[in-house]
Design a binder for these strands. Structure first.
Lengths: 72, 72
DNA sequence: TCGAAAAGTGCTTTTTGCTGCACTTTACAA
DNA sequence: TTGTAAAGTGCAGCAAAAAGCACTTTTCGA
């Protein structure tokens, strides 16, 4: 999952919940400036930042094994 | 998924592939020092660093919706 | 149309992640 | 037991993420 796709999921989720960037910034504890960067496709968030946003949006950051049929 | 759990998955995956930290560092392009930090439970990696490790290990970083039955 | 709310951007400072180096500790096979 | 490979840690420098501020642009309903 490419970072752009992850940013898009966060943005889409926020919009589907009808929450503004400003509100999400307050709810998540992530600065508005930082949030704006991601949603405009820039930046390289830390895991913690991503998790803060996820927590506020009901999203979860996970790590899963790829290619289930090929690798073990 | 808490960061500790994510670190553990990375470590477990590396071990299950019988790869040393040093080799994984070379394969992934992440510095050995950095990798050591995560596996000993410290640090707050950037998404990019996590993805580099994931790429080398056949793991994927994803963002998914929590509580499928409760939220939308 | 137009005015306000929301979103996007340039600049800057502060914080901290990434890294190299040197060293210590642990695990394990001979 | 002991030597070596692997893993863990303190310190320091640099690069970049996080954040604040001010401003511009876009969106959208009255």
């Amino acid at each position: 999952m490419h970072s752009r796709k992850i940013f898009n999921i966060v943005k889409a989720r926020r919009e589907s919940l009808n929450v503004t960037q400003e509100t999400l910034a307050q709810l998540s504890g992530v600065a508005l400036r930082t949030l704006k960067q991601f949603e405009s496709g820039k930046g390289n968030p830390t895991l913690q930042t991503l998790q803060k946003l996820g927590d506020a949006l009901g999203l979860e950051v996970t790590v899963v094994i790829k290619n289930k049929g090929i690798n073990t």
